[in-house]
């Protein structure tokens, strides 16, 4: 018995290969970040006291009902945005693809805003309506972008067209949002602006629980595509000959990213650049294979969002900076840097 336990222990202790090492390291970092995040906030709550049941009831309530779901939502949204960024970059065979840049997020945002302004009633179904609207919006944009990509074929011209299409969709969605804000009632307007800036503030168990399940499903679908995404990098004809059913792969990735990103946007608004930043940095470190890159991006995205959100909560406490602003401030310059470096290489 002890021998078995020991064997098990040593197998767990000695990292088998680089993949295990990297993923274990990222998981550990994420757990540390979670502990730090769970113990920080506007309200000085001691994590230790909460777990021991020694904290006062109000603090305990705040921790369980506000902070914990927020942490979990941060993990899920961060993992989803970065994971879908990695998957889309693989699908388009291009490091600049990203749910925000291609307009998926703003498309989802527009549909959610439409839902809030025109269809929402105060019933319990309203929440799930918002989910569905986000999913539909992301799916629509995904199909448009794919249609354009298909017509363009490969090559660098196609990349420019994709980014321009994303720009057009982003602008259009922005304008649509403006129109909606104009015709919205005061109450709706308040809701729109609270949600639209990209923040994890709205995390409640009621929404978070369902979102966690659906996002986990989307992440699982993406993980199942890792090997096939690797194959796709050979080019479609060669990959087909190597055993890849490209259309099945595309459908799966499109459904998973639309579902996941749509949900994220419905819950948190647009949190930009995570999907660009995380996979890109990790690819420089880990190489292009999606078998490692996808799970590492998910962990890395979760880590980055949890850290960014904790900073957003605490820098200006008791006030709170929308975390979307923070990630955009981080990601925007990095994206510009990428573009400049690419141009020099050409």
């Amino acid at each position: 018995m002890i021998a078995i336990l020991n064997a098990y222990r040593y197998r767990m202790l000695i990292p088998v290969n680089r993949t295990t090492r990297v993923l274990a390291g990222l998981t550990a970092a994420l757990l540390l970040a979670l502990v730090w995040a769970a113990a920080s906030g506007a309200l000085g709550i001691s994590l230790w006291e909460v777990l021991r049941g020694q904290e006062d009831p109000f603090s305990v309530q705040v921790w369980w009902q506000l902070r914990l779901p927020r942490l979990l939502l941060g993990v899920a949204v961060g993992a989803m945005l970065a994971g879908s960024g990695a998957a889309m970059q693989g699908l388009f065979r291009n490091p600049l693809a990203d749910p925000t840049l291609l307009g998926l997020a703003s498309g989802a945002g527009l549909f959610v805003a439409l839902w809030i302004v025109f269809f929402q009633d105060s019933g319990a179904g309203s929440l799930y309506g918002q989910f569905a609207a986000g999913f539909l919006g992301a799916l629509c944009v995904c199909l448009i972008v794919f249609g354009i990509a298909k017509r363009q074929g490969g090559g660098s011209a196609a990349v420019m067209t994709l980014l321009l299409a994303g720009l057009a969709i982003n602008t259009l969605a922005g304008a649509g949002g403006g129109v909606l804000a104009f015709i919205a009632s005061d109450e709706q307007l308040r809701q729109l602006s609270l949600w639209g800036m990209g923040t994890l503030t709205n995390a409640l168990w009621r929404t978070t629980a369902l979102a966690l399940v659906l996002i986990a499903a989307a992440l699982w679908l993406l993980m199942r595509s890792a090997r096939e995404l690797d194959l796709l990098q050979l080019g479609e004809a060669t990959a087909h000959a190597a055993g890849l059913d490209a259309s099945r792969l595309k459908h799966r990735v499109v459904v998973a990213t639309s579902l996941g990103v749509g949900l994220c946007v419905a819950l948190t608004g647009v949190i930009g650049f995570l999907g660009l930043l995380v996979p890109h940095c990790l690819r420089l470190w880990l190489g292009p294979s999606h078998r490692l890159l996808l799970p590492a991006s998910m962990l890395g995205g979760a880590l980055l969002l949890v850290v960014a959100d904790t900073l957003a909560r605490t820098i200006a406490a008791p006030a709170e900076i929308p975390v979307g602003l923070l990630t955009s401030l981080l990601g925007g310059p990095y994206f510009l840097y990428l573009l400049m470096r690419r141009n020099r290489a050409c």
Binding site: G90, R93, P95, G154, L232, L234, G235, T238
Partner: peptide, 10 residues
């Protein structure tokens, strides 16, 4: 199949 001069992605 080895297609004509295609750059691999990444």
């Amino acid at each position: 199949l080895v297609a004509q001069q295609e750059l691999p992605g990444f």
